[in-house]
Write a protein that binds this DNA or RNA. Structure first.
Lengths: 338, 338
DNA sequence: ATCGAGTGCGCAATCGATTGTAATTTTTTC
DNA sequence: GAAAAAATTACAATCGATTGCGCACTCGAT
């Protein structure tokens, strides 16, 4: 920031009145005469006066900035969340500060510390894969800075949340495979300590039960990255494990699965059906196109920001609230058409 | 931001000294006795005192926040740039505010206006596809807020820049195809008004000249999106146009090309070689894996941020500087192995 | 005993905007 | 025409931190 910016004092000096009068005139305060108001307003417009946001922040003790902590920005899902956040933030005069935790607990703590001694009015966070405690978040609570979790939350930490209906999404995907006639469905699951993975796994299991399909625990494999999927898929093929479908915890993993299946001459979806999770843009680009569970990232961002704004405005009044967003199974060519 | 934060006054009151003494003690000012310094420092530590960044911003007229304007965050390249920016920013005590222009000129102007009347010490920008003038940026210049362009710049606007060697990248890719024996190389080009596309096109053309290959202007097609690539590729196939390679301006377009080629039974790389640009993560996920020109996004972010910090610190002293980052051809399976 | 230098610290202004209260001017009323 | 009421506007404090200037005090030197 540099000089050359018009202040309320400049206007006051030019009109030979006091800064306080200028301030009141600009806010249409009843104490100020119409004549003065007109003078002030026209001069303010002419000089393109804007109140200095920093001065306002200092006085009002609110910065109109919110902090976003996100695991990795390079994921389509997370960047769409950010877009949703930005949209709503902009509409309400908030600016957004984004920091990545890189899925690291230590980094997440650092980022939070920076935000704490900083200027944010509220925080939106999706915790890293490594995060298991919430000491670093407690401080926000203590200082009265509202927190809203999105997508990944800490169950024990009481606060507003926007999450995906992971259970339902996984249930639908699995049930679709079962209805398709699949009986030995492999699940490439996410980290055991993440609620999100637990719920997807639960949906997977429940769909089996509801449809009277026997569950084989050996079909659940913990693998949630592209590179690892290449290896794990090859392993299960080599091991002679029998399977006729694979449901993965995200689309990158599904991409790795598809690639390895095809490399081994296994036809998708003839021999094996594959369903991913996330509806990343790769889902349309890979071959065959990927049937996947769409997560409304943009909507999630919008809702999270709305909840945060509401919490900032209404302080502690409202009870804590959790928004569960519906998923949708997007059918493409990695499953048989119905 | 809420209360409960320790201020310099609180410390002063507790020690029955003046705020100014506390301030000086904390900064190890020689006027203050060691005894007082020790008292202040230990109490500050105990109370976990942090200077209020907003108060500092107001006084110093610098916020230690920099603004980033980016076309679309969902692109791997841009999100890696942001990661690089964030890394260097963090190391130097800067925070980052990110806003997207969504490739729209109007939105870009809005974002810039917000930043202008805001609190940023500098701006990093990659202009939208639609942007042709720079009135909205001139204001930053006028107010002494430094600008650094990354990836996409406005030629007429004098300022620091970090760009990719688009020409060289395109040249290498094209030459590789020529050496491979390709003679009718289609180029899916980006918008004509973008320097970046012009340079890639230039590299494509120059590689032909240098290698004595005749240029057929009908092989240059303006198409830079996945969906459009599906259509355009089908068009050139149906039109009976002869070609034996396709070089695209980005990886999404290449993905569309690959998909359509395979759909039409055209073998890659046997019949047609394909090279993309960007080294997006899809390059490894699609089938066949995509040979592409890697753009060092993370490095670009780092460099841009370093240049901006340097410019903020050294004001107008240094002459304007342009950093040209090298590209690298990443060989994968959409071209013949050498 | 007094002057001068040196030490340690506080006052007050500043950054830009806001707001309770006081002060001034204008208008009204008897 | 003077006092009371109403209408305007100015003063000063505030948000938190910094800093030029000056004050008070100590101590050695003359």
């Amino acid at each position: 920031m540099k000089s050359s910016n018009v202040t309320i004092k400049d206007i006051a000096k030019l009109l030979s009145i006091s800064p306080s009068t200028v301030s009141r005139a600009l806010k249409d305060h009843p104490d100020i005469s119409q004549t003065t108001k007109d003078q002030v307003n026209s001069l303010a417009k002419e000089l393109n006066y804007r109140p200095n946001p920093i001065a306002l922040s200092l006085r009002n003790r609110r910065s109109n900035v919110i902090g976003v902590v996100i695991p990795e920005i390079v994921h389509y899902f997370f960047s769409s969340v950010i877009s949703g956040i930005e949209k709503v933030a902009g509409e309400h005069g908030y600016s957004v500060m984004v920091s990545q935790s890189d899925e690291k607990y230590e980094r997440e703590k650092e980022v939070c510390t920076t935000f704490q001694h900083s200027i944010i009015d509220g925080i939106l966070i999706s915790i890293s894969k490594e995060t298991n405690d919430f000491a670093h978040l407690q401080k926000f609570e203590d200082e009265g800075i509202p927190i809203v979790f999105f997508d990944r939350m800490i169950e024990e930490f009481e606060s507003d949340r926007v999450i995906i209906n992971d259970y339902e999404g996984a249930f639908q995907a699995t049930e679709y495979l079962i209805v398709e006639g699949r009986r030995r469905i492999v699940h490439f699951a996410g980290p055991k300590n993440r609620l999100i993975s637990q719920n997807r796994l639960k949906g997977y299991l429940e769909a089996h039960k509801k449809n009277g399909v026997v569950i084989d625990e050996s079909l659940v494999i913990y693998c949630d990255e592209f590179d690892k999927a290449l290896i794990e898929t090859q392993k299960i093929i080599d091991s002679g494990l029998k399977f006729d479908a694979i449901f993965t915890v995200n689309d990158f993993t599904a991409a790795g699965v598809l690639k390895t299946l095809q490399k081994n001459g296994i036809k998708v979806p003839t021999d094996v059906s594959v369903i991913g999770f996330g509806n990343d843009y790769i889902a349309e680009m890979i071959e065959p196109t990927l049937t996947t569970v769409s997560q409304p990232g943009f909507t999630m961002g919008e809702r999270a920001m709305e909840m945060l704004i509401n919490r900032i405005k209404n302080e502690k009044n409202d009870p804590i609230h959790t928004d569960v967003l519906p998923t949708k199974l997007v059918l493409r060519n990695s499953t048989k058409p119905r």
